[in-house]
Amino acid sequence: MNNAIKTAIDLVGSQQKLGSACGVTQQAVYKWLHNKSKVAPEQVVRVVTATNGEVKAHEIRPDLPGLFPHPVQAA
């Protein structure tokens, strides 16, 4: 299960609502949630926006650090 997407669903209210906010179907969100497909890079920003930034881009696609780098933590 994709915990970032689960958090996004919980914050937005449902798979349907997250899908609507991102311009995709509920079925697409279900696939993201269950790791049957990855969130397309252009959809990552929409998920972040739908959650008011509570879910971070690097949490959704940690496999794309060049596009969505993890913020550098202070020492």
Rank of each mutant, 00 (worst) to 15 (best):
M1R: 13
N2Q: 11
N2E: 01
A4K: 02
A4Y: 12
A8L: 06
I9H: 09
D10K: 15
D10F: 06
D10Y: 11
L11G: 05
L11C: 05
S14A: 08
Q15T: 09
Q15L: 02
Q15V: 00
Q16K: 14
Q16W: 01
K17F: 00
L18F: 06
L18N: 07
L18Q: 10
A21D: 06
A21Y: 09
G23Q: 11
V24G: 12
V24T: 15
V24D: 03
Q27P: 02
A28C: 04
A28M: 13
Y30C: 08
Y30S: 15
K31S: 04
K31T: 08
L33N: 06
H34N: 15
N35S: 15
K36M: 07
K36A: 07
S37E: 06
V39Y: 01
V39K: 03
V39G: 03
A40D: 11
E42K: 11
E42V: 14
Q43N: 15
Q43E: 02
V44N: 09
V45W: 14
R46G: 00
V47S: 04
V48R: 09
T49A: 10
T49R: 12
A50W: 11
A50H: 10
T51D: 01
N52G: 10
N52A: 10
N52P: 01
G53S: 12
G53H: 13
G53R: 12
G53F: 13
K56A: 10
A57S: 12
A57P: 05
A57K: 08
A57L: 01
H58W: 15
E59W: 14
E59Q: 15
E59T: 12
I60P: 05
I60V: 11
R61S: 03
P62N: 09
P62W: 05
P62I: 01
D63H: 10
D63T: 07
P65E: 01
P65V: 04
P65G: 04
L67E: 04
P69A: 05
P69I: 10
H70E: 05
P71Y: 13
V72P: 00
V72S: 06
Q73L: 08
Q73T: 11
A74Y: 06
A74C: 04
A74N: 08
A75M: 05
A75K: 13
